[in-house]
Amino acid sequence: MAFKVFQSVVQRIRDTIGYDFGITDSSGVIIASTVEEEIGLVHDDCVDFLNSNSTYVEKSDMVMKKIDNNGRLDFVLYLLTNHPDRKSLAELISISMENAKLYYDEKYDKSNFMKNVLLGNILPGDITIRAKELRVKNDCRRIVYLVRTEKTRELYAYNIIQSLFPNNSKDYIILLDDQNTVLIKELKEKEDSDEIHKKARIIIDTLSSELMIKANIGIGTEADSLRDVARSYKDAQTALKIGQIFESEKNIVDYNHLGIGRLIYQLPTTLCRLFLNEVFKEGVFETIDSETMITIQKFFENNLNVSETSRQLFIHRNTLVYRLDKIQKITGMDLRKFDDAIYFKVAMMVKRYLDDVSK
Rank of each mutant, 00 (worst) to 15 (best):
Ile294Gly: 04
Thr269Lys: 12
Glu249Gln: 13
Met293Leu: 14
Phe338Tyr: 12
Lys241Trp: 04
Lys329Tyr: 11
Val253Ser: 02
Ile242Asp: 02
Phe285Val: 06
Glu249Gly: 03
Glu301His: 09
Val279Thr: 05
Val253Tyr: 00
Phe280Gln: 01
Gly332Trp: 03
Ser248Gly: 10
Ile260Asp: 05
Leu335His: 11
Arg323Val: 14
Leu267Thr: 15
Ala230Phe: 12
Leu313Tyr: 11
Glu308Tyr: 11
Lys241Asp: 07
Ile315Asn: 01
Asn251Ser: 10
Ser248Val: 13
Leu274Arg: 10
Val306Asn: 00
Lys241Met: 10
Phe285Pro: 03
Leu276Asp: 08
Thr331Gly: 10
Lys234Ala: 14
Asp254Ser: 12
Glu278Ile: 13
Phe299Ala: 06
Thr269Pro: 05
Leu274Val: 15
Ala230Cys: 15
Arg323Phe: 12
Leu335Ser: 12
Thr331Cys: 07
Glu308Asp: 15
Glu291Lys: 11
Ser307His: 00
Gly259Thr: 04
Glu247Met: 08
Glu291Tyr: 07
Lys326Ile: 12
Thr331Leu: 08
Phe246Thr: 06
Ile242Pro: 01
Phe338Met: 15
Leu324Glu: 11
Arg231Gln: 15
Ile264Thr: 03
Leu304Thr: 12
Tyr322His: 15
Gln297Trp: 01
Val229Pro: 04
Glu308Asn: 12
Arg273Tyr: 08
Phe338Ser: 12
Thr295Asp: 05
Val279Gln: 02
Leu324Gln: 09
Leu240Met: 07
Ser290Asp: 10
Arg317Leu: 00
Leu335Asn: 11
Lys250Asn: 13
Gln297Pro: 03
Val229Glu: 04
Ile264His: 02
Thr270Ala: 13
Asn305Leu: 07
Cys272Gly: 08
Gly243Pro: 02
Ser232Cys: 10
Leu335Ile: 14
Arg273Cys: 12
Leu274His: 14
Asp339Asn: 14
Ile264Lys: 00
Asp339Pro: 14
Glu247Pro: 01
Ser290Ala: 09
Gln328Thr: 12
Glu278Phe: 10
Glu308His: 03
Lys326Trp: 14
Thr319Glu: 00
Glu291Asp: 10
Ile264Ser: 00
Arg262Tyr: 11
Tyr322Met: 13
Lys326Gln: 14
Glu301Lys: 06
Asn277Glu: 04
Asn302Trp: 06
Lys250Thr: 03
Lys298Tyr: 02
Lys329Asn: 11
Glu247Tyr: 01
Glu278Tyr: 11
Leu324Ile: 15
Ala236Tyr: 04
Lys329Ser: 14
Cys272Gln: 07
Leu335Glu: 13
Ser248Phe: 06
Lys250His: 07
Tyr255Arg: 07
Gln328Arg: 14
Leu324Asp: 02
Ser307Asn: 00
Lys298Gly: 01
Asp340Thr: 06
Leu267Glu: 08
Lys234Arg: 14
Arg273Thr: 14
Gln244Asp: 13
Ile327Asn: 09
Ile245Asn: 05
